[in-house]
Amino acid sequence: MADYIIESKELTAGYGKAVIIQDVNFQAERGKVTAIVGPNGSGKSTFLKTLFGLTRVFNGSVVFDGEDITKLPPEVRARKGLGFVFQVNNVFPNLTVRENLEMGAYARTDKEQIRKDMGEILDIFPILRERQKQKAGSLSGGERQMLAMAMALMGRPKLLLLDEPAAALAPKVVTQIFMKIRDIVNSGVTVILVEQHAKRALSFCDMGYVFSSGRIVMKGPGKDLLADEKFVEAFLGKR
């Protein structure tokens, strides 16, 4: 049987009284990349937020590393090894780049190791080393995305949720970002990747889920989905 790091069962959630996602049964295998694709507004971001406890859960559960975390607040989930890179507003604009990275490691207490990790991270993202003392709000889009990922990594997560990390970036930067993600996965971190660009995502992932109107409509290994005629017709045909 596959080793799932996180699993949602019959998950129904939303904001206030609005139900956005319904009956979502989802699994992500440890050490792999699981992609979520689907049209704009289909609830992909909401689902990720729900995994992190940032929405209102009406029904169902989330199990992380064998533990039911449905009722835990986000700050506790972070301490259990979840990391998140938001789609937008994913850095602290009034903090310096270095302070942002420190915030990434906020829940950790191993000072020595944090310092080492900081060095390593700045090696991985050299552009951030140059901009350490700059306010994050002054970074370009690509740099900001790098910083957001670097921050998440500073928390040494077991599972990293990435919400459209390549949206609205220049193609060259997109390639760079995906290379970094690959490195992250290779270092042993499980990744859940939300992407609008279905082709890119599915060719990159191990397993893919397709969301539509808050529900899972298809799932399967990325390559299989790309080969599926029904899928291509419904989600790629118009492109």
């Binding site: 607040p73 700050e75 301490r79 602290f92 009034n94 302070e99 915030m103 906020y106």
Partner: peptide, 23 residues
């Protein structure tokens, strides 16, 4: 640390939470 976290909260409370800040 708490001081920086407060500035972070002022900037973006959700992001502070997912970074592990006990808001």
């Amino acid at each position: 640390k708490p001081g920086k976290a407060l500035r972070a909260m002022a900037d973006n409370e959700d992001l502070a939470r997912v970074s592990g800040v006990k808001i």
